[in-house]
Write a protein that binds this DNA or RNA. Structure first.
Lengths: 365, 365
DNA sequence: TCCCTTGAGTCAAACGTATGACTTACCTGT
DNA sequence: ACAGGTAAGTCATACGTTTGACTCAAGGGA
């Protein structure tokens, strides 16, 4: 037989025959670990539960006296009252949790973005749920489910794929995409073209004529853009290119090194990489081939993660301001959830080329 | 004037004068974006809401016929029903969200741990909330608050500090600590001592007599342990040490390089680093001093992040199996939440020294 | 005296789900 | 023909909040 403990204003906890969740307690005075509810602080203060709610939500304007207000605040603090978020969500229909989906959290770059987002979200009272799309084939369904089930108020997806984007169609008003696959769907975008233009311009300016491109082998718009921008600029300034001068690889380090080696073997004197990690692989390949950077080979990276400064020589690379990216994404999402924003044009985040020691004039060795 | 839409079993949506959340709709047939509830699928199936709930939770054993069961499943799927998580939580008192607090998500190592944890959690139907303790001074209070308010069912904290651990005391049954500050409080621990022992043994075995230690300047037990284990092993095998051979730095790259340079200048022939990043800084310092690794200086790292293989020469370092760590932490937490586990001894995760090219015999150059 | 306002609260109805206690109709054995 | 059993559901309540509608007493003017 189990017991149900009901609460009585005068007697405190009273045991009543029956059953229920509270039945795990074994005695009327055992209120260990029972969460403190607004009703508890109401009873303690001799007011109604409504009054407590009103006061604690700052909606007591002209409805509750200053004295009572303070008493309730104090009691709530004393009892360690924490509103039950589920009940709040259920009642109000809106929660304070956001999700942030990144392609691969193990890449330090996304870590930086995520931290910035988390900070920005927290400032507005939101928490952020982590979703790593690399490890979860069903991430998009799951995300849509979470939005539908109100577990999260909204979410940000960093470089979703086209397939996923289609699934987001009917919850689009709660999603912000960063570097979306579909043109015009992005809430936040990067100035990839301009950045790659300055990379090519920099290398050409140093006298390089055979410039290779080392692409990331992932079907993301951002990488396609990098490649397209590279080609466009090469063409614009009147340089030639060759299919052989284009390599691609995943981020797996040995595979990338091998791909880089083949690329270097074609005789290019400079390489523009789609990612700092790939640049790191190019360094390894160059060493294996007995070439010295930057004297025999110039290398430029992309992203500017910490690794860029740990490589030797330090890597010239395109900086993406991860913190700004994270912040802006959250800002967009929150204003979208508020219903305030009707902006359709993406927020642009500007990239910049950071010159370090991995590039040098060609033909002065 | 606003309208309240109530639901009538025979008529579907009926408009009734009044007010409420649904009042944003302007006509009875406008049910756009109203979440589908269990009651909706009940009405559609001509059964009661209870039946739907029973079926969808797999508790229909002997209570609902196979035919009805299938009909309900199908209808739920057709309408795209997703249970309202808040309501579930409110009713059952338990949610399916966990938090994972890491010291610094920008360190790739924690990214790996987090991913493993997320995967393990997802397998059990849980989501994980990200908490970065570096960016949030109030993280421990917030975490306790989340547990109290039932937003999260439990959490994992990676290397909390003593102060934070004290705050967790009264929600200890919902927290698993990894590498806790307080001896005996850890749910998961690493074999730091054994690892550092093999580091020192390896270097001593190569003939090094002046072995330096490059510590991480953070007040964490894990780093104190590394230092203590280093000293203990040096002493055990009868080597001498000198206060000058001990340097410490944060992970800020320029500061670390400077500290490493001073350490190397004391004439040590080998350095055991508390972290791969610090080893990376040691590489930079060695280059600045014109020393070659491993011929003039042997370096050993700790953690074995991707960087270890991108450095040149590739770094000999202590591998921490991040994925196992993440998985075990989640496993511990879930079994703790189940109330099944009464284990008090931590799960030990074994580290291993990975030999690469950054160490060499001393005195053969 | 009576009516009206204002300050200080209280009431009660949701939000969507989960579940122990009922109900009802049908079947089986004697 | 009837007690007893079982299969297939339904009912009602509770979880803890939020919030528009209501109450009630005291004070103020005419």
């Amino acid at each position: 037989m189990t017991y149900l403990f009901t609460r009585d204003a005068s007697l405190g906890y009273v045991s009543v025959e029956g059953s229920g969740r509270r039945g795990t307690s074994v005695a009327g005075n055992d209120k260990a670990n029972l969460p403190v509810t607004s009703r508890d602080v109401a009873r303690e203060t001799n007011v109604s539960q409504s009054t407590v709610s009103l006061v604690l939500n700052g909606k007591a304007e002209g409805r509750v006296s200053q004295a009572t207000r303070e008493l309730i605040q104090a009691t709530a603090a004393r009892l360690g009252y924490q509103p039950n978020v589920s009940a709040q969500m259920l009642r109000t229909g809106v929660g304070k949790t956001l999700a942030f989906a990144v392609p691969d959290i193990q890449q330090p770059f996304f870590g930086e973005v995520l931290v910035a987002a988390e900070v920005a979200a927290r400032e507005k009272g939101y928490s952020v749920l982590l979703v790593d799309t690399a490890t979860d084939p069903l991430w998009s369904e799951r995300l849509v489910g979470m939005i539908r089930s109100r577990l999260i108020a909204g979410c940000i997806t960093y470089t979703p794929d086209a397939e996923a984007e289609a699934k987001f169609a009917d919850v689009a008003d709660r999603i912000v995409m960063v570097e979306s696959e579909t043109p015009g769907l992005s809430g936040v975008d990067l100035t990839i073209d301009a950045a790659m233009k300055s990379v090519v311009g920099h290398l050409a300016g140093l006298g390089h004529r055979k410039i290779g491109h080392f692409a990331a082998l992932y079907p993301k718009l951002t990488f396609r853009s990098r490649h397209a921008a590279f080609l466009a600029e090469i063409e614009r300034i009147g340089l030639t290119t060759d299919p052989l001068w284009h390599a691609a690889s995943t981020f797996e380090i040995d595979a990338a090194t091998e791909a880089a080696r083949q690329l270097i073997a074609t005789g290019v004197t400079a390489i523009a990489c789609d990612d700092d990690l790939l640049a790191g692989a190019a360094y390894r390949a160059a060493r294996q081939l007995g070439l010295s950077i930057p004297d025999d080979l110039s290398v430029v990276g992309f992203n500017d993660v910490e690794l860029a400064r740990l490589l030797h020589p330090e890597l010239t690379t395109v900086n993406i301001p991860a913190d700004r990216l994270g912040r802006e994404a959250i800002r967009r999402l929150l204003s979208k959830l508020d219903g305030k924003s009707t902006r359709t044009k993406p927020t642009m985040v500007e990239l910049s080329l950071i010159l370090r020691q991995s590039t040098a004039r060609h033909g002065n060795g």
